Simulated assay, not measured.
Amino acid sequence: MLQGKVYGVYFSPTGGTRAYVTALAGLLSCEAEEIDLTAREERARDHVFGPEDLVILGAPVYAGRLPQLEGGIFERLRGDGTPAVFNVSYGNRAFEDALLEEQDICQAHGFHGIAAGAWIAPHTFSGRIGSGRPDGTDLEKVREFAAGVRALLERPDWRSCRLTVPGDRPYRPARRVEVYPAGDESCTRCMACVSRCPAGAIPPESPRSTDTGRCISCLACVKSCPAGARAVAGPAFPKMVEGLEGRLLSPRREPELYYGR
Rank of each mutant, 00 (worst) to 15 (best):
Q3N: 13
G50R: 11
K141C: 15
V88S: 04
D46T: 14
L152S: 04
I105K: 10
C193N: 08
P226V: 08
V165K: 02
G136N: 15
R45L: 15
S224A: 14
D184A: 11
A227M: 11
Y171I: 05
G148C: 01
A116K: 01
N92T: 02
L244E: 06
P13Q: 06
L57H: 01
F74A: 07
R150A: 15
S89W: 00
F125T: 06
W119T: 04
L66G: 02
P226W: 05
A236F: 13
L37W: 04
K141N: 12
G4N: 12
A174S: 10
L57K: 01
V149L: 06
L99A: 06
A84L: 08
A199N: 07
L244N: 03
T38G: 07
Y62W: 11
G136Y: 09
G234P: 06
A39E: 14
A44Y: 00
G213A: 10
A19M: 09
V194M: 05
C106M: 08
L28S: 09
G50I: 07
I216E: 02
P226S: 08
A121S: 15
H123N: 14
L57T: 00
R143Q: 14
G132H: 11
T17G: 07
S89C: 13
P235H: 07
Y259L: 04
G117L: 07
Q68D: 15
P134N: 13
L99P: 08
F86C: 03
F145W: 08
C193Q: 08
A115L: 02
E96M: 03
E178D: 12
A121R: 05
D104F: 00
T82E: 06
F145H: 13
H123P: 10
T124G: 13
I105W: 00
R176C: 02
A63F: 07
A98R: 02
P207G: 13
I120G: 01
E70F: 01
D211E: 07
P166A: 11
A236K: 12
R252E: 15
E75W: 10
G117W: 03
L24S: 08
A115K: 02
Y7I: 12
P198C: 09
A182V: 13
I202S: 06
Y259K: 03
I35K: 12
K141P: 00
R214H: 00
E254G: 05
H112S: 11
R128G: 07
M240P: 00
G136P: 05
C221G: 01
S206I: 03
S250P: 00
P238V: 09
